[in-house]
């Protein structure tokens, strides 16, 4: 659906070329929710804006739905942008227009829609985002979550195939963030919309994304399915994001294990294995004793997972490892 081919971007800052994005190749498949995570200044915002050419690339090509976005003339670009919706961290609604008028705006700009058609479409969108009763209000009268839902309705007005989300939940409280993410997941599922979102929160990625790319200093340092990247982070930047999301510090954790006896393992269960009584059974059968040092059981999108850090002493350690392996539990030996 979206393909970056050796795309790079440099900015001219007081006469010097400053790279914002190193040569990057990446694919976003149709119908998936793709997350770009990175700290501020990592280049994720640039990458998102390259897709609808709010930023022009300094090199490389960007193909969207088989069309070379980098080669479009200005009329072609305007037509293309109508097929790509976008929502923003600070919502960017027109303060001078009502909720209904904000949602109608992309249709009016596009032209070729009668007043009656626009009204029907706006009502439909208001119902989808649950704001039917707020049609005549102005954005200043709405809460942050409601504003973002107006933003989503506006972005969907022209029935785009792609939705770009620029830190769409970063200005919202945790509860509202949950509702907005749920709405995004819903429209992805029901409309088959391809969603690209950028964020600096691993939790947002975990809750809605299918795949993720981790950006650091203008380079994609790691990418893959969210489960793979989240459960087995390889790059230092990714590890930092994951540990941030779990509110633990990797270094502190290791030093607190220093007086623990035996082998320390990290077990990762996925899918149904998460709920199976594996640990007790294997301990009984192989004679190892275990103590649980830490862990978390949660979901990545809909898939349950568990990650436990345990210490094993005594018994037949090799047999225990083999049994875990046979049960599709990923074992990492930490010490």
């Amino acid at each position: 659906m979206i393909e970056f081919q050796n795309v790079q971007k440099t900015y001219l800052v007081s006469g010097r070329q400053v790279p914002a994005l190193q040569s990057t190749s990446l694919r976003v498949e149709a119908g998936e929710v793709f997350g770009l995570i990175g700290h501020s200044g990592a280049g994720k915002s640039t990458m998102l804006r390259l897709i609808n050419r709010l930023e022009a690339p300094s090199g490389g090509r960007i193909m969207v739905d088989g069309e070379d976005v980098t080669a479009l003339d200005s009329a072609g670009l305007r037509a293309f942008r109508r097929r790509v919706g976008m929502i923003f961290q600070h919502f960017n609604l027109l303060s001078s227009k009502t909720v209904a008028a904000n949602i109608a705006m992309p249709l009016e700009l596009a032209g070729g829609h009668s007043r009656a058609e626009i009204k029907v479409r706006v009502d439909e969108l208001l119902a989808r985002v649950g704001l039917t009763d707020h049609a005549r209000k102005y954005p200043a009268q709405l809460s942050g979550g409601q504003k973002q839902r107006v933003g989503i309705a506006r972005a969907l007005a022209t029935r785009p195939k792609i939705l770009l989300c620029d830190e769409a939940t970063s200005a919202l409280d945790p509860q509202t963030t949950g509702q907005v993410l749920q709405l995004l997941a819903e429209i992805n599922r029901e409309l088959g919309l391809t969603i690209v979102l950028i964020t600096h929160e691993m939790d947002v990625i975990r809750r809605v994304c299918d795949r993720v790319a981790v950006l650091d200093a203008g380079t994609v340092v790691e990418q893959g399915t969210v489960a793979d990247v989240f459960l087995h982070p390889k790059h230092a930047t990714t590890r930092r994001f994951v540990f941030e999301a779990e509110h633990v510090d990797e270094g502190d954790l290791m030093s607190s294990y220093s007086h623990v006896e035996g082998r320390i393992l990290r077990l990762t269960f996925r899918g149904e294995a998460t709920y199976a009584p594996l640990l007790g059974r294997i301990a009984r059968e192989t004679g190892v004793d275990y103590s649980i040092l830490g862990g978390r059981i949660d979901r990545i999108r809909e898939e349950p997972y568990g990650q436990l850090t345990i210490a094993l002493v005594g018994g037949d350690l090799d047999a225990a490892l083999a049994r875990f392996d046979a049960a599709d539990v990923t074992v990492e030996v930490i010490r």
């Binding site: 609808n52 709010l54 670009l77 305007r78 037509a79 293309f80 942008r81 109508r82 790509v84 976008m86 923003f88 600070h90 960017n92 609604l93 027109l94 303060s95 001078s96 227009k97 705006m105 992309p106 009016e108 700009l109 596009a110 506006r154 022209t158 770009l164």
Partner: peptide, 29 residues
Amino acid sequence: VDRGIIEATQAMGASLWQIVTRTLLPEAL
């Protein structure tokens, strides 16, 4: 006028004339 609002109008596929008449002038009224 908030730059973000201008950017949002651009992202909707507005022409320069539309940006001026539909966004800039009404927002700055």
